[in-house]
Design a protein around this nucleic acid. Structure first.
Lengths: 326, 326
DNA sequence: TCGCATTATTGACTTTTGTCAGCATCAGTG
DNA sequence: CACTGATGCTGACAAAAGTCAATAATGCGA
């Protein structure tokens, strides 16, 4: 894609400022334009990803607890967000860490799967701007028919926009009213093809959902609170890409899952870099289920959550590596 | 390598400033430290490569002339430095473009060969700071015994320092007084081993030397002006990594070359990304020789030089791709 | 071609950042 | 234990960058 004529001047300004280290007034002089415009250009250059500013996220992975967690659970890398008073509030910090790590994990030409949820949306919201043409961001699960603040397509679109990547949305509902219709829709060539490309992803980003009344599926009306309770009694322990998983991270054979249009769990497990981000303390059990199910190779959690995972993992005598991990 | 305790605070400051977008005074407040210190930390963070600021060099490759040059000569990519009045002085611009392109071409874990000369030294001098641990920078040719402003080892070391990469120097002179000694030294295990690793490089950076009286080899005393003249008469057309090449880019069988300790030309040609940077207008013939010899896959030149190359290449009826190109 | 709406540019002002001399701290040394 | 040189921190000031309302330019439909 050639540079648009109007971008040329922005590019030049950014180059002189960031590469040559000229001051804004010097750049303004050189390009025969006001300094105020240069300031505006530079802002745009950053927003367009012409200029990229990255900070190593090593601060969060260089940690004894992170090493221990990796060793115990077989994760490739863990990032630990501290909760001490000197640090940021974890609720604000976690998405920033996640966005930074996510960006670091992307390689040229990658295909990236993005799921949905409050956490993912917040990550999209603080995602730095970059120029990653050649990268493709695909939606991992169907859309929620009802309007909702954190729609799956919004997550995908926003991330793709910020990265200057291609965003591929999924034009199917997440849940249908009958199993038959879901089945038929999954068989539709457009949908089928898109689902088939998911296992080609090199990187996936998601959180794990809870099965409480405040879970997304309930709040979005995909499931009633009663249904969710019942599913919980029958072994459901968490939600991955809109689908219920049991405590071992296995697909639950229930009406809801059968009515879902979303990435096949094995396709997700086939993705090499599976980045799982968990914010809320009350998602401990769902997180354990996701870990047991092999849904994470890269994990971002708070210090306290990391401790709880370590303790439980060791208590259960689970060895290195989760079942189903690639 | 774990973060040094003292770096931790720098890292934190950089994180809060660049990732969370806090102002310096807010960071100062959070870390309970003066704002002036934060300013100092941030500078250090940039110099240490904790924070990296990159600008796309597309401005120079997105150019009709660049496309034509690539198509005609079979280069992978060409970057053209403009000479119009609105742009920077090419003498100042070229090294900045080269440094930026060089950084873009590096991939994780790469081994990089760096030669020597005024151009390479200037590139090293404007190389941005980055955190590329795992990358290795190796010296392509022996050192100049005589003290000189742009010593081969300085180029390697400075680039490695700025990139936070490992620098491997070559502790042998570039030229020895007798062929026999050069031969013996090349046979020494330490030297031999190092020379052997050169073809494992994924990226090389060099310029091409001229054979005029002001050439490096003459100015450093490796060759007398008379010898150089004589070599010129006998077909030498340029210098690559301290060694003379003829107009077709082939190794010249002369006393000087036989007394040289430097990367084997075929080893250099075996490197996938061969980045050639030519500043001076009077290096046209050496550049042509280097191109014919397949010493460039990535080229950085001025507009006028690009035009001359195009014209000559077409006139000579050289097809796509240089002989010897990988 | 005109008028309208939208976008781009700028000068003047405010806020933020960079700098540096002076003070505090600390490790090494006689 | 005092001395010394080096390093690091800070407050106050200077420099640079950010912002915004007013103005100019531009595109576009009628």
């Amino acid at each position: 894609m050639p540079i648009r004529a109007t971008d040329q001047i922005i590019h030049k300004a950014a180059w002189l400022y960031y590469n040559h280290g000229l001051r804004q007034d010097e750049v303004a002089q050189k390009l025969e334009i006001s300094r105020a415009s240069i300031a505006a250009y530079l802002r745009r250059a950053r927003e367009m990803g012409i200029v990229t500013i990255t900070t190593s996220s090593e601060l969060f992975s260089d940690d004894v607890l992170a090493r221990e967690l990796e060793d115990a659970t077989g994760l490739t890398t863990a990032w630990i967000v501290p909760e001490d008073r000197q640090a940021m509030d974890p609720a604000a910090e976690m998405p920033v860490v996640a966005a930074s790590v996510f960006l670091e994990l992307i390689e040229k030409g990658d295909r990236i799967g993005v799921a949905w949820g409050r956490t993912v949306y917040h990550i999209a919201d603080v995602m730095p701007f970059a120029d990653l043409r050649g990268v493709t961001v695909v939606q991992l699960c169907g859309n929620l028919g009802a309007p909702y603040s954190y729609r799956p397509d919004q997550c995908t679109t926003e991330i793709a926009r910020r990265l200057n990547a291609e965003g591929i949305n999924f034009y199917a509902p997440l849940v249908l009213s009958t199993e038959r219709l879901a089945e038929e829709l999954r068989g539709e060539p457009v949908i089928k093809e898109q689902l088939a490309t998911i296992s080609d992803c090199q990187l996936a980003l998601y959180s794990v959902g809870g099965i409480e009344d405040d879970s997304h599926l309930v709040k979005c009306g995909a499931l009633s609170a009663e249904d969710m309770h019942a599913l919980g009694k029958n072994g459901a322990a968490g939600v991955i890409a809109g689908q219920l998983i049991d405590r071992d991270g296995q697909w639950v054979d229930c009406a809801h899952n059968r009515r879902c249009i979303s990435a096949d769990l094995d396709s997700i497990r086939a993705i090499k870099k599976r980045m799982l981000v968990v914010q809320e303390d009350n998602k401990f059990e769902p997180l354990m289920a996701a870990l047991r199910g092999g849904f994470a190779s890269h994990l971002i959690v708070t210090t306290s959550m990391a401790r709880r995972v370590m303790e439980r993992w060791n208590r259960e005598g689970l060895g290195k590596g989760a079942p189903g991990a690639a």
